[in-house]
Structure formats: C-alpha cells, structure tokens
Amino acid sequence: MSEFKLIPEYSDLSPKQFHEEIVPQQKPIVMRGFAASWPVVEAARKSSRDFVKYLNRFYNGSKATVLLGHPNINGNFFYNNDCTDLNYIQGDERLDLYLGRLLELAQKDVYPAVSVQSISPENILPGLAEENVTDFFTETLPRLWIGNQTVVSAHFDSSDNVACAIAGRRRFVLFPPDQTGNLYPGSLNFTPAGVPVSMVDLHNPDFDRYPRFQSALDSAFAVELEPGDAVFIPMLWWHHVDALEKVNALMNYWWNGAFAKNPVSPKPIDALNMALLSMQDLSPIQRSAWREVFDHYLFKKNVDPNSYIPEQCQYAIGKITPEAERKLKDDIIQRLQA
C-alpha cells in the first residue's frame, strides 16, 4: 500500500457537504465509519455466521446469479489464458444455499472463488436496505456484492459510486481517467466486468508487454476499507478491488450517471460503440476531423452552440424535451433497422 498515493479521508462529512462540495470535484475520498451503525455491519463484526444469519432474516427465496471459478484462478475473475472465454462459470442458485456454502468454503485451505455481484436487495432481501439506511442516499437503491477472497481487475463505472464494505476488508486501487491508455483496457464488448477491464495483472505486472503501466502505477491511489467504511469513486475512475477475507460483502450506490438514470436509456459506452461502428472505415485524418465536430457539439470546446442556435432547434445539444428525445431515438432505431 505504501507505494500508492493516499486518498483524503473524512469521518464527519454531512450529506450536504458531500453532494455540494465533494462530488462536483470528481476526486475520490474515503468516509470512515460511513455505515458503522448499520445492523448488518454489527452482525458481520461479530462473526461471518452472524452476518449470514442476519441476511437470511430477509431472504424471500429468490435465486441469485453465482460466479464460480477454479481455485487455480486465485480468486481473479478474468479471461482464460488465450482470451477465448472467461475463466469462470455462472449459474443461478438460492441465496441461502450459496451463503451456507460460503461459510463452508471459509473453513477450507483450498477453495474455489465464488461471488454474487450487483444484486438488488429489494428483489431478494426485501427490508435489508430499509434497516440499513444512510442520509446520503434517500432515493437511490443500493446493490449488494457477496463473495470470498476475489479479485476484480481495474475497471470503471458509468455513474458516480459510493462503495461501502459491510463484511470483511476490501482494498481499492484507483486510477484517474487520464490513465486509461496506460492501463491497457481490454475489449469493449467481451468483458468479465460488463465494462472494459485492464489487461494488466496489478499484482504481477508484465512491464515488457505493458510498459506504460508503470505510469499508471505512479498515478494510483489506494485504500483499505474496514467494515462500515466507504470510498467515493467518481465515474470513469478505474478501480481494482481485492476482497481480503474468506467472507466479504459490499453495498454500493450508483447515482447521477448512466446506470442510475435508466437501465434501458442510451449510455455513453453505447455512443462509443456506435462511433466505432460508423467510423471504422475512415482514415486517421477523417477521424480527426470528426473529433473537431464532437469537440464543438458535445464538449463545447470553443463556442457553446446553445449560445447561437435558437432553442426550438437545439434538440440534443440543449435541454432536450421528452418529445425530442423520443424522435431522436426513433430516428436511430430506423437507421439501425434499415
């Protein structure tokens, strides 16, 4: 941990300070004791068995998707050796059976990697979120992650994220967005994390193959969370996550971004895929020319187009109306179906 930069820490931050002062800066912070008083955290601090017993109080019998990896992957859910497939399998299982199996595996010296990821408590553990609340997010529903000593390679989220350890310890290594190229991101469309992941093994980097990764390490931040601690990860900040205990759980909140807006609405990564499809046959000079157009309309680099285009003609570059949004979507759908 000592080779990485430290993330600023707070222990008495108010929701108002967080949303009005911290979030707009888009820099990570740590919130110690963020959920220290939650009953789920208190149960986990007693024992892993108490933690599982507490969760089962809310269980409604629904199944969850379980990831399972052979012991030889060392907990790292990733690609197989030749990147033709993933190195784990997944299937649906009753959550109570999974949690019982998790406790059994915790007693073994050699064990597979297991995880349930991004489940909605309201669908599987109704009442859990209501009994473990925070004033920071009164309208945002949390997601729940439960597993053993697993590794998630550096990836980004399309929304701002507050991730709170509720059982076991977790180590986060964060990289700012300007390090994207130095992280050697993998495929946009075939990925173990739903978004591109770094192809570099953080714990054993191959600098001959990935020489620019050293620059990413020089810009990295790190923190280790105890149960009840949380870290704010701004959107597009890359984060590598190590779950350090044989029973680990995390609750997180995504908001003000692509995930929080609407699961079926267009996302920035969709725009990137569309751009790749539509511009793949263009020359480098032509792509650079299109960059100028993107800079003008999207990033408003020099002159804000809203300053001279009449409001009734602005559509997507202004405050888009529901009717205009529907028309733009319909136009895109027609083009894709043509």
Rank of each mutant, 00 (worst) to 15 (best):
M1H: 15
F4I: 00
L6T: 14
Y10P: 03
L13Q: 13
K16C: 07
H19K: 04
P28C: 10
R32S: 15
G33C: 05
P39Y: 13
P39N: 07
A44Q: 02
K46S: 10
D50C: 09
V52Q: 00
K53T: 07
P71Q: 11
P71F: 09
C83H: 11
C83Q: 10
D85S: 13
L86M: 13
G91T: 09
R94H: 10
L95G: 08
D96S: 11
L105N: 03
V110R: 14
Y111P: 06
A113V: 01
S115A: 15
S115T: 12
V116R: 01
I119A: 01
S120G: 04
E122K: 09
L125D: 00
E131A: 04
N132H: 01
N132P: 04
V133M: 06
T138G: 00
P142S: 12
P142E: 05
R143L: 05
L144N: 00
T150I: 14
D160T: 04
V162F: 14
A165V: 08
A167Q: 06
R169Y: 05
R171L: 10
D178Q: 13
N182H: 02
Y184H: 06
T191F: 09
P196N: 02
V197H: 02
D201Y: 14
P205E: 01
Y210C: 08
F213M: 02
Q214P: 03
Q214K: 13
S215H: 01
F221Q: 01
L225C: 08
D229I: 10
M235Y: 06
V241F: 12
D242R: 13
D242P: 15
L244A: 11
N252C: 12
N252V: 09
A260Y: 08
K261Q: 11
S265N: 07
S265L: 07
P266S: 04
P268V: 14
A271V: 09
L272W: 08
N273H: 10
D281C: 05
S283K: 11
S283E: 12
R287F: 02
R291G: 04
V293K: 07
V293M: 11
I317V: 05
I317H: 06
G318F: 03
K319N: 06
E323L: 11
A324T: 14
A324L: 12
K329G: 05
Q334S: 13
